[in-house]
Amino acid sequence: MGSRDAVPYRQILLHDGEPTPRTTGRALDDDQAIDLQFHVEDRDITPDVTERNGSTYRDSSIEFFAVPDPDDDSEYFNFKPTC
């Protein structure tokens, strides 16, 4: 892991009125990597989307957005591991 202390992440939940699972996370970074750790308490984990580049936002997933240039948030990376 990186040499810096873990920092909290900003959590934005868009769940269309469904119950929101309890989620915690940590992020560490250094000159070589960004390390992420998430813990989600969810009883209903279902991977319904199986096609490549499918609409995985509809499945149980975590998203991490990284903006390379803090002065320009029009370009970003979106990492979305699913169950």
Results as ranks from 00 to 15, higher is better:
Asp71Arg: 15
Ser74Gln: 12
Thr20Asn: 00
Pro8Val: 13
Gly25Gln: 06
Thr23Gly: 11
Gly17Met: 04
Asn78Trp: 15
Ala6Leu: 06
Val49Leu: 04
Glu63Asn: 14
Ala27Pro: 03
Asp31Ala: 12
Glu51Ser: 09
Ala33Ile: 05
Arg26Asp: 09
Asp73Thr: 07
Pro47Ala: 09
Glu63His: 13
Ser74Cys: 07
Asn53Leu: 00
Val67Ile: 14
Ala33Phe: 08
Ile34Arg: 02
Asp29Trp: 09
Glu51Met: 02
Pro70Thr: 15
Leu36Lys: 10
Asp30Ile: 05
Asp71Asn: 15
Leu13Ile: 09
Leu14Phe: 02
Asn53Arg: 09
Asp44Gln: 12
Pro81Val: 08
Arg52Leu: 10
Asp71Gln: 15
Gln11Cys: 07
Val49Cys: 10
Ser55Glu: 12
Pro81Thr: 05
Pro21Met: 04
Glu41Gly: 11
Val40Leu: 14
Asp35Tyr: 01
Gln37Val: 14
Pro21Lys: 05
Ala6Trp: 04
Asp69His: 07
Val67Tyr: 15
Asp30His: 08
Ala6Gly: 06
Asp31Leu: 06
Tyr76Gln: 11
Asn53Thr: 01
Arg43Trp: 01
Arg52Gln: 04
Asp73Met: 01
Ile45Glu: 12
Ile34Asp: 00
Phe38Tyr: 13
Ser55Thr: 11
Asp31His: 10
Gln32Phe: 05
Ala6Glu: 05
Asp31Ile: 12
Arg22Asp: 14
Ser55Phe: 01
Arg10Asp: 07
Ile34Thr: 01
Asp16Gln: 07
Val49Arg: 14
Pro68Ala: 14
Ile34Leu: 11
Asp69Gln: 07
Met1Pro: 02
Ser74Trp: 10
Asp16Cys: 10
Asp73Ala: 05
Phe38Lys: 08
Phe64Val: 04
Asp73Leu: 04
Phe79Tyr: 07
Val67Pro: 12
Ser61Ala: 09
Arg22Gly: 11
Ser74Leu: 04
Ala33Arg: 02
Pro70Gln: 13
Gln32Pro: 01
Tyr76Thr: 11
Gly54Cys: 04
Asp29Ser: 03
Ser55Lys: 13
Glu75Thr: 13
Val67Gly: 12
Phe38Asn: 07
Leu14Thr: 12
Arg22Glu: 15
Asp73Tyr: 03
Pro19Tyr: 10
Met1Gly: 07
His39Ile: 01
Asp72Lys: 00
Arg4Ile: 02
Leu36Val: 12
Asp69Ala: 08
Ile62His: 15
